[in-house]
Design a protein around this nucleic acid. Structure first.
Lengths: 195, 195
DNA sequence: CTTCCATCTGACCGATCGGTCAGGGTCTGA
DNA sequence: TCAGACCCTGACCGATCGGTCAGATGGAAG
């Protein structure tokens, strides 16, 4: 039987993901990560150039998917853009629950780091697509509330299975986005509880 | 004209609010605050027992309103609870935009501090009310997305006037909450409600 | 003038942070 | 056998953090 090769690199990555999720990037020290892995802080810095590189490697897959979604959105307008943005972001957020949880709330500072260049612009475009490229306050508000809320929900609802969470979020998103393409004379207000 | 009494205490409070909003609680040092005020770090700690006390005083009014909302929610069920929760929280979030922005993303750790005791339980009850006290995943998801998203929107949309933001958020909330199966015991009372 | 008190400060403290470095094991292939 | 690559470590570094403390300042009261 093959001697189990100790995958220290991977263990550090996993431990960092857990710690970042619980305490945030800032709130987690390299010492904390090393302690959980059971190695020295110097070992962590042997496998990763610095703390930022550790975070970057952790986030790379999620960022790649986000970039991909950004490409799909390119050229789409109106309700089509809204639907693709909603579906794409819900998928992404559910799939990368942990990564989302890590970044939660530490965006403003983290986005300055080179590893996350252009993430701000991408999420701005995503938000814009979800608003149906409308600049009406109602549409902008709905888009931001959805993006932020979906992120938070994915980070928080660890007890809900992926499929159920994805379905719930997508249903909500479709119900909540401000309709733009075919503006109805009087949108279906919920004056009566019929569906 | 009266010699302007230097309200150092208030200036520190205001500077802290600005800095916390931009860089977060953790990301702001007492030195940063002192620098903005134009005094020494020791002066900051002369007016406030410690960093936590500074935050607590900053948050006190918002927390009082939140507690008040929690009381109003007590006993309400179904659609009535949803409406009161939505309206109350939107009002609160818009009114205390800055405070919301400060707490954004630093909840998990900050809630451990004694100054914020029971805030977690209160916001859990608020979320539960917004879900119409249903434990269906769809209802729970909608409630969390709304609470988190509304907070984020208030922190972010500094360019939208209060009234417009409040209207947009409330409209979205009413559109997005999952309708509860059990309708109101009695239809909305015709008194004080002017909606 | 002296006393008192509120305000404010520079110097300092211990703790912790991210990061560096020289060197010690261990395995492998020549 | 031995050189060298790889993995890992303790000791250490400078910076910064929140917080303490003795003392300077200055105005009001006696």
């Amino acid at each position: 039987m093959v001697r189990a090769v100790p995958d220290t690199h991977g263990e550090i990555l996993a431990a960092a993901a857990r710690q970042f999720t619980v305490s945030g990037y800032r709130g987690t020290s390299l010492q904390d990560i090393a302690r959980e892995v059971g190695c020295s802080k110097a070992t962590v810095l042997y496998h990763f150039a610095n703390k930022e590189a550790l975070l970057a490697e952790l986030m790379a897959p999620a960022i790649a998917v986000l970039r991909n979604l950004d490409d799909q959105l390119n050229g789409l307008t109106g309700a089509a853009a809204q639907e693709v943005a909603a579906q794409g972001f819900v998928d992404l957020a559910v799939r990368f629950r942990q990564e989302i949880a890590v970044l939660r709330g530490e965006f403003p500072e983290l986005l300055c780091q080179p590893a996350f260049a252009h993430i701000q612009e991408i999420s701005d475009r995503l938000r814009d697509a979800l608003a149906g490229h409308s600049d009406r306050p109602g549409a902008r508000i709905a888009a931001l509330v959805l993006l932020a809320g979906i992120s938070e929900a994915c980070a928080e609802f660890a007890d809900i299975p992926d499929d159920e969470l994805r379905l719930g979020l997508l249903t909500l998103a479709r119900r909540a986005v401000e309709p733009v393409d075919a503006p109805l004379p009087h949108p279906p207000t919920t004056e009566d509880k019929d569906s």
